[in-house]
C-alpha cells in the first residue's frame, strides 16, 4: 500500500481525473461531436444530392442529345428518300420519253419501209407491164405468122408466172 502511495496513486486525484474526463466528454459531445457529425452528414447528403442532380442533368442532356440526333437522322433519311424518289421519277420519265422516242422512230422506220415496199411493188408491176409489152411487141414482129396473138400472150403470161414464182421464192 505504501508503495502505491509512493507511486503517486491517490483516490482523490484519481476521482478528480475521472470527473475531468467525464466532464470533458459530455461537453465535447454536446459542443463538438454532435454538431460536427450532423454537419458532416448534412454535407454528405448535400454533396450526394448535388451529385445526383448533376447526374440527372447530365442524363437529361444526353437524352436530349440523343433525341436531337435521332431527329437529325430521321430528317436526313427523309431527305435521302425524297432525293431517291425524285431520281426514280426522273429516270422513269426519261425512260418513258426514250421509249416513246424509240417507238416513234420505229414507227417512222416502218412507215418508210412500207412506203419503200409499196413503191417497189408499184415499180415491179410497172416493170412487168413494160416487159410484157416489150416482149409482145418484139415477139409479134418475129412470130406474127406462126402464132396468133392470143396464143402468144398465153405463152408470155405463163413464162412470167414462172419467173414470179422464182422471184417470190427468193
Amino acid at each position: 500500500m505504501e508503495n502505491i502511495v509512493k507511486l503517486g496513486l491517490n483516490p482523490a486525484w484519481l476521482l478528480a481525473q475521472l470527473a475531468n474526463f467525464l466532464l470533458l466528454f459530455l461537453i465535447l459531445r454536446a459542443v463538438a461531436f454532435k454538431p460536427i457529425l450532423n454537419m458532416l452528414d448534412t454535407r454528405k447528403k448535400k454533396i450526394q444530392e448535388s451529385l445526383e442532380y448533376a447526374e440527372k442533368v447530365k442524363r437529361d442532356a444526353e437524352a436530349q442529345q440523343k433525341e436531337f440526333e435521332r431527329k437529325l437522322d430521321e430528317t436526313r433519311r427523309q431527305n435521302q428518300a425524297a432525293v431517291a424518289a425524285a431520281g426514280q421519277v426522273a429516270e422513269k420519265e426519261g425512260e418513258a420519253i426514250l421509249a416513246q422516242a424509240r417507238a416513234e422512230s420505229r414507227k417512222l422506220v416502218e412507215q418508210a419501209k412500207e412506203q419503200i415496199e409499196y413503191e417497189r411493188r408499184q415499180m415491179q408491176a410497172q416493170l412487168r407491164e413494160e416487159v410484157v409489152r416489150l416482149s409482145l411487141a418484139a415477139s409479134q414482129k418475129v412470130l406474127s405468122q406462126q402464132i396468133d396473138e392470143k396464143a402468144h400472150r398465153q405463152l408470155v403470161n405463163d413464162f412470167l408466172a414462172q419467173t414470179d414464182q422464182l422471184g417470190n421464192r427468193n
Binding site: 486525484w13 481525473q17 475531468n20 470533458l24 461537453i27 465535447l28 454538431p35 454537419m39 448534412t42
Partner: peptide, 30 residues
C-alpha cells in the same frame, strides 16, 4: 484536497479543447 500540477495541466488541456470546440462550432457553415 491537494491540487497538483498534473491536475492543473489537465484542466488547461480541457479548457484548450473546449475553447477550440466552441470556436470551431460557434457559427457553423456548410
Amino acid at each position: 484536497f491537494e491540487i497538483t500540477n498534473t491536475l492543473l495541466t489537465s484542466w488547461i488541456a480541457m479548457l484548450v479543447l473546449i475553447g477550440l470546440a466552441v470556436t470551431a462550432t460557434r457559427n457553423m457553415k456548410l
